[in-house]
Design a protein around this nucleic acid. Sequence first.
DNA 1: TGCATTGTTCGGATTATTAGAACTATGGAA
DNA 2: TTCCATAGTTCTAATAATCCGAACAATGCA
Lengths: 125, 125
Amino acid sequence: MRPLFHPSIEDVTVEAILHALSDPVRVAIFAKIVGSACSQNCSNFLNIREKNIPKSTLSQHFKALREAGLIRGERRGVEMHNTPRCMEVDKRFPGLISAILNAHNIQLQAKTKPASAGKRKTATR
Amino acid sequence: MRPLFHPSIEDVTVEAILHALSDPVRVAIFAKIVGSACSQNCSNFLNIREKNIPKSTLSQHFKALREAGLIRGERRGVEMHNTPRCMEVDKRFPGLISAILNAHNIQLQAKTKPASAGKRKTATR
DNA sequence: TGCATTGTTCGGATTATTAGAACTATGGAA
DNA sequence: TTCCATAGTTCTAATAATCCGAACAATGCA
């Protein structure tokens, strides 16, 4: 089996990061990896966002996140440990990841409680 | 000709924004629209980033930016005036757009002058 | 050795992106 | 008014990317 490829931090591009995080499943995965204290293996995400993701698709998603430079994957025995590369990425592109994750959270909150402050003006032209 | 569609700000999603800006041509267009004082028409971008973009492709790119909620397009006579929607978007997703544009600038600078401060450590592992 | 578990790779179907050609819409000049 | 130039859009077909089931590889354990 082919060894995992990780770009060195100076080869990481904004385009690749944005593309990787423009997929709802992938942001959800990334957000969970960032938010959890210990590293996560892939199968923890077989049903994320109330959807059943086939594991072949999951594998591709993790590959996309890895090759965008967002996570680091390390095989440990039969499973894989995924850790975020936020520190490095943040040094290269300050504030980028936190702004994206923050926006992602705002959107989630607006979706789960739509009756709150979101509708003060009925339709913002 | 079909009227232009613009999403209202609460329908704008992070995914759509990231996807729109994950294309090198589209970020370049958007950055220029944001950076210029007056509104820009589409044909100003027929050759951006030293590439010749066919106008049918350009038209699709502008549609993508519009429908992501990033710009507002307004037909004035024969041409179109494009203005950014940064204010609205920033109210919804604070810091998102500026972080992306900032990262984009960092990347551009690193590309145009690769011999400067970018290589203090020969290879950042 | 045999098997369960975890993740990858392959192949075909579906979907998105690209760009040339034909088209629409507007403003001016003759 | 008629004709033409200009600015964008839509149509269509080729190409590329994505998705997911099936087959596979790699590890750990009974």
